[in-house]
Design a protein around this nucleic acid. Sequence first.
DNA 1: CCCTTTTCTTGATAATTGTCAAGCATGCAA
DNA 2: TTGCATGCTTGACAATTATCAAGAAAAGGG
Lengths: 232, 232
Amino acid sequence: MPEVHYPEIRALNLFAGMQEAHFQALMRGAYVQNFPPQIDLISEGEPSDFLHVLISGSVDLFARWNGRETSLATVRPISSFILAATIRNSPYLMSARTLEKSRIILIPSQDVRGIFDVDGEFARAVVSELAQCYRSVVKSQKDLKLRTSLERLANYVLRQQKRAGGAASFDLDHEKRRLASVLGMTPENLSRAFKGLQPYGVTVEGARITIRDQPDLERFARPNPLIDDHAT
Amino acid sequence: MPEVHYPEIRALNLFAGMQEAHFQALMRGAYVQNFPPQIDLISEGEPSDFLHVLISGSVDLFARWNGRETSLATVRPISSFILAATIRNSPYLMSARTLEKSRIILIPSQDVRGIFDVDGEFARAVVSELAQCYRSVVKSQKDLKLRTSLERLANYVLRQQKRAGGAASFDLDHEKRRLASVLGMTPENLSRAFKGLQPYGVTVEGARITIRDQPDLERFARPNPLIDDHAT
DNA sequence: CCCTTTTCTTGATAATTGTCAAGCATGCAA
DNA sequence: TTGCATGCTTGACAATTATCAAGAAAAGGG
C-alpha cells in the first residue's frame, strides 16, 4: 500500500497506540482500493477476510432477510468497519456497499487477529472501538423501541443539526430513501413525517432543513444523551 | 468475597485466561450480594461503578424514555453484564433489575479497568465478550427492523425450543409481559400473535408451547443464523 | 440540451399495532 | 378455603404504519 496513507491511518484511535513494527506489518499486507458508487463490498454471511478502513467517500451497512432490506448505519471517513467479525473470525452480520466513490483500505483479517494477539495496546484500542460500536447499536435499539417514527425523525433532525454545526438551516447528509430505512420507516412515511414536523417549526426544501422554532421542536423531540449522543 | 465462588468465576471466558495474581486482585475488591426479585440494580445514566457478574437468578436489562419502557435483554447465569460501560468508564445505557432472587458479584469498575490495562490476556477476553455482545445487538436490530411482530414471535418460539432441548413441547422462560417487551410489542398483541401462530401448528397453554408441525412453522418463520443463532 | 431513470411526494386504502376497558385465570396470603 | 393482586386474554376502537398507484421533481447520461 502507498505510504502516503500511513499517517492518516496511524492517526486513527484504533492504530494510534500500537507498536510501530506491528503497524508496519499490518500495512505491508494491506492494500488500498477505489470503488465507484453503489458497489457491493461485503455480503452478510461471508467469512470476514478483511478489516475495512474507509478513507474517503461513504459506505452503507445494511442487512437483508426474506426479500426485505434495511440500512443499519452509514460509515463516514475515517473509520474502520466490520471490526467485530474480523476479531471473532465470524461471518459478517451486515452487508456493505459504497454510497459514493470511495477509497478503502483492506487489511487481511488474519493479520489483524495476529497483531491483536501480540500487541496489548492495539488490543485495548480494539476494545475501546468495539465498546463504542456496541453502545452505539444499543442507543439505536432504544431509539427504535421507545419512539414513534415521528419522534425518531425529530431527534434525527436535531442530531443532524448539531453535526452540521448547529445553525437553524442545514442539509441532510442521507438520501431520503436511505434515511427512511435507517429510521425504520418507508420513504412514503418519511415524507409524511416531515410534514408532521411542520407544526413544530420544521420546514423541508429538498435536502435543506430549517428549524424555525428550536425550543418547540426540542420540547416535542425530548432528545436524551443516552440515546442521541453518539459520542459517549 | 467468599473464596467458594472463585472457581466458577474463574471458569468464565472473561476471567479464564488472566494471570492468577490479577484475578486475585480483582476478587479481593469484589463482593457478592443477594438480591430479592424486582430490585433495581442499576439505573441508566449513572456512572458505571461496578462490573456485575450474575451467579444465579436472572436479570432484566431495560431502558426508559419519556414514560415508556422496553426490555432489551435478559441476563442468565453465569455471565457478566454492563461490560462496555465499565471499560469505557461511561454511564450505563441500560437499567437493570432482578427478575428472581439473584446472587451477583460486584467488581469495582476501577479495578477492572486497572487490570485490563496490565493484563493482555484479560484485554483479549474482554474483546471477545464485547464483540459477542455487539453482534448480539446487531442481530436483535435486524430482527426488529426486518420482521413483523408475528415473524419475530415465530422465530423466538423456534429459538426457545432449541434452548429448551428441541422437543416439540417446552416452556417459555420469560413472563409473557416481558417477552412482549423484548419482542417489541404490547402484551395484548403478544396474545393475539400467539393465536396468529395457530395456523402454523403452534398451541399455547399458559407458559407451555407445543409445536405440532415443525416444518410448517419453519417455513413461515424462515429462521436465519445471521439473526437467530446467538452463538456465532 | 433533451431524454431517461430514479427519487420524492401525495392520495387512497389496507394492514398492523397500540389503547382502553372488561372479564378471566392464576397465584399468594391470611 | 376466601379474598386480593397480578397477569393474561378478548373485544372494540383508534392510531400508526405500510402498500399501491400515480404524478411531480430531480438527477444522470448521451
